[in-house]
């Protein structure tokens, strides 16, 4: 079983396509939609984590490409402004998946992107407004 996080960009004309159905039915993948911005007639974006066989994921990416969807590996969507951060640690108190934590020893802030579900709890909690989500 493989797991990948994909950043899908939909062209305006494709924005209503039922992608989830095809991922599940045709490629036997388990999609977990983390974030989505879909408006009819506009470019859309979706952040989806897919689990399944590695070759199925590759085939699904090829399919998405043929459908006119730009597929990229989810990049650094959560940004921490190190100059603003004071390492108070409040973000770690609201991070349910445990993506943000404090290192033992020096208590520096550690971000594990793989665990992040882009819920924005840290964005709201950060008293320094040092955390932003680009998508």
């Amino acid at each position: 079983m493989a797991r990948r996080r994909l950043d899908l960009t939909f062209p305006p004309r494709q924005a209503t396509k039922a992608i989830a159905y095809h991922l599940v039915k045709d490629y036997d993948l388990v999609p977990n939609f983390l974030r989505a911005q879909i408006q009819p007639g506009q470019q859309g974006r979706m952040l989806v984590e897919v689990s399944g066989k590695k070759e199925s994921i590759d085939a699904a990416i090829t399919f998405l490409g043929h459908e006119g969807i730009t597929v990229a590996e989810a990049a650094s969507d959560l940004n921490l402004d190190e100059d603003r951060c004071v390492a108070c640690g409040l973000c770690t108190a609201v991070c349910k998946p445990g993506a943000l934590s404090l290192a033992t020893g020096d208590y520096a802030l550690v971000f594990d992107k793989d665990k992040c579900v882009y819920c924005e709890a840290c964005v709201v909690a950060c008293p320094r407004r040092a955390v932003t989500l680009t998508f």
Binding site: L90, C91, S101, L102, A108
Partner: peptide, 23 residues
């Protein structure tokens, strides 16, 4: 509290500081 988890009435509760220890 610094360990990241405390137990309240038998339930594990995650903790987080607001006061910066590095500073």
């Amino acid at each position: 509290l610094r360990s990241g988890e405390i137990t309240i009435e038998g339930r594990k509760v995650p903790t987080g500081p607001i006061s910066s220890l590095p500073k």
